[in-house]
């Protein structure tokens, strides 16, 4: 028998070696600044700002960056824009985020459960597949009008809109994930008589997780868009309502400020919450399905959660 106690265990050193070799290839890459993704990203932002300023110079209805920053400072400090028109910042953002969080907390689990049902049962697929696709295709503005009709200018309308927008996104990707689970792995479980609970937990959920997370990421974006539109038409607080108020006052710097804030908030959420979660779910080296803005690496190679590239070993 092999003396097992004396066997070397090297996983840490192996992965470190892999990481070192990644660093080496990265530093050896030619091309200078233009091959760096962070530089290209900054360049893109700079170009957008320059074009914006040029347009602002020629068009009186487009505010320039200085006006937007001035407006933003007054909003954040909740000072006055002149006369009785007060700045407002934290309450619209707080209200929107509360509705968004409640809506996502309801919508994502519903979507997940629906996705598992549609993916595993042909009956459920027959019953729910088309309904899910209809919900997916319905424009958010329809929810805005319906929820205003049903609930008036309350928080329930925007929350319902977030739920109904987010759930189908999650359901569609989860059901696709379930259906894509390799049949040969299901057979493997059957031949080893792996108990149903463990099979569900590790094969079905484990195999579905990456597509579920990609779907959730999409649902977060769609839910946020939907929320803002519903608040625009049918709320008396929130980011969408604030943007609409400023639009009605024809306050171009104010309107632009809130549109930018709206984009910035979802980008921060995506970058610091959703993308790290997605990266962790994909750490076993399958490239994520959403490829936009997903790694700081300019190649398509995947990285694991600690940023180390998984490297193949040979016999």
């Amino acid at each position: 028998m092999t003396d097992f106690s004396s066997l070397p265990h090297l996983p840490d050193s192996l992965t470190d070696t892999a990481a070192r070799s990644v660093q080496k290839t990265q530093t050896a890459k030619p091309g200078g600044l233009f091959s760096r993704p962070w530089f290209l990203r900054l360049l893109a932002i700079a170009i957008i700002i320059i074009v914006w300023q040029l347009v602002a110079l020629t068009n009186i209805r487009v505010p320039n960056i200085a006006e937007v920053i001035r407006f933003l400072i007054i909003e954040i400090s909740e000072g006055t824009h002149g006369g009785t028109f007060k700045g407002l910042f934290w309450s619209p953002i707080g209200n929107s985020f509360m509705r968004y969080a409640i809506g996502m907390a309801i919508g994502v689990p519903i979507g997940f459960a629906l996705g598992i049902l549609i993916g595993t049962s042909t009956y459920a697929r027959g019953l729910l597949n088309d309904t899910t696709l209809v919900l997916l295709a319905l424009p958010s503005v329809v929810w805005a009008f319906l929820s205003t009709l049903w609930f008036g200018l309350t928080s329930e309308g925007p929350i319902l809109a977030v739920v109904l927008t987010a759930a189908p996104f999650v359901a569609v990707s989860v059901s696709a994930g379930v259906r894509n689970i390799d049949r040969s792995l299901i057979e493997m479980c059957a031949s080893y008589r792996v108990p149903l609970l463990r099979r569900t937990q590790h094969l079905i959920l484990g195999g579905t997780l990456p597509s579920a997370i990609t779907g959730t990421r999409l649902a977060f974006m769609a839910g946020w868009n939907s929320l803002i539109i519903v608040e625009w038409f049918g709320a008396t607080s929130g980011v969408g309502w604030r943007a609409r108020t400023l639009y009605n006052f024809q306050d171009y710097p104010g309107f632009t400020t809130w549109i930018l804030l709206f984009i910035l908030l979802i980008m921060i959420l995506d970058r610091f919450l959703l993308r790290p979660v997605e990266r962790r779910a994909f750490r076993w080296n399958e490239p994520p399905m959403l490829t936009f803005a997903e790694t700081d690496d300019d190649s398509n190679a995947s990285t694991n959660n600690s940023g180390k590239r998984l490297r193949k070993r040979q016999d």
């Binding site: 066997l7 070397p8 265990h9 996983p11 192996l14 750490r283 193949k312 070993r313 016999d315």
Partner: peptide, 28 residues
Amino acid sequence: RREAEFYLSMVGLGDVADLYPSQLSGGM
């Protein structure tokens, strides 16, 4: 875990327990 590592070492794979399958060659 110890038993799993024991059988892995029997097929000469004592050092890959914590790697993912995609990091191994077909033979491994």
